[in-house]
Design a protein around this nucleic acid. Structure first.
Lengths: 177, 177
DNA sequence: CCCCTATACTCAACAAGTTGAATAGGTGCG
DNA sequence: CGCACCTATTCAACTTGTTGAGTATAGGGG
């Protein structure tokens, strides 16, 4: 929907190449907006065409050259407009919840495994986030520290909930097995 | 991505027409999967074509007739397969977080309003969820009660976080105003 | 009586997101 | 010395999701 704006916001934190953005969107930002590299490259092209970002080729010695993108004045203005406009409500797409909704129609075995995987993933994410928080320090910019906090709180809540789910699923298995 | 499966899961809780599903997807399920009516009608057609759901026309007296959909045996089987397959990680699309990420590039005024709106919306959702929980009773099926719980915990965490954000934004405004 | 809202759906066009493959040099490991 | 993985990007085809309009009947309010 507005990956374009997510890209602008990311670039407002400093210049980056498509590849670097792809990694950021895979790790730090992944929690509130996700994107594949292809999508990023495509949108960067469009943003460049529309004059919202500028590219500059950086020659590198031991690896392929890269194109580093920066916000233009127009880009900064567009970002400002976007920030001022009303936000559309958050959308969550969580397959696990669909599976869980249908648990009565099947056996809980597979879901127990899925819940365990989810728990493990949440904990990994939390660990990464905590490291990021340490690296950021206390004097960091407001936006990134608050969005990071959102990620941390979300995953903490998620681990608690998933633990509850596991418990219920195991009870169910014990009762019906 | 797999709205089809979300529809199958919804129908596993009982038959429904496209219109009824559209309302469910707007309210109860909205928290972990969203869909517009158009998408539902389109996917229901596809599911019917593939033999996973069956339609039956219900004649109504004081309103248009409706087509009520039920899972077929094949549909139940497909749902079972889906539940057993590994779930892809949850994806969140939250515009507010993008805006917040870019707060340093603009003035916090608009974001304060957005945060207040978000808080209000969260509280409305919570109120609706709590009512749903009461209506469900304790003997309800496992899946729906756990997904509802997920929605409640998510919104509770969200209100706490948004309150923190508001506080920080107001400090920022006071400092720079 | 007209307008608004609700039920119940359909059609068409478009925007956004996903998947898979291809290219091409460099680094590290055994 | 070959194989796998990392950087860095592009192309093409596809599936999903969004937006807006249009159809038809019924009930309620001023």
């Amino acid at each position: 929907m507005s990956l374009r704006h997510a890209v602008l916001a990311a670039l407002s934190q400093g210049e980056a190449s498509g590849y670097e953005l792809a990694k950021r969107f895979d790790v730090a930002v992944a929690d509130f907006w996700s994107a594949t590299p292809q999508q990023l490259y495509r949108d960067l092209e469009r943003l460049e065409r529309d004059g919202l970002v500028e590219a500059r080729v950086v020659e590198q010695e031991r690896r392929p050259n890269k194109r580093v993108f920066t916000l233009t004045a127009a880009g900064r203005a567009a970002l400002g407009e976007f920030v001022a406009a009303p936000a559309r409500p958050a959308a969550i797409r969580d397959e696990f919840l669909i599976k869980l909704q249908a648990v009565d129609a099947g056996e809980p075995e597979a879901l127990i495994a899925a819940a365990e995987a989810r728990l493990a993933r949440s904990r990994e994410k939390l660990a990464r986030y905590e490291q990021l928080r340490k690296r950021m320090g206390t004097e960091e910019s407001l936006g990134p520290s608050l969005t990071l906090e959102a990620g941390i709180l979300y995953e903490e809540q998620n681990t608690r909930w998933t633990t509850l789910v596991l418990q219920r699923l195991r009870e169910r298995r014990a009762a019906s097995g």
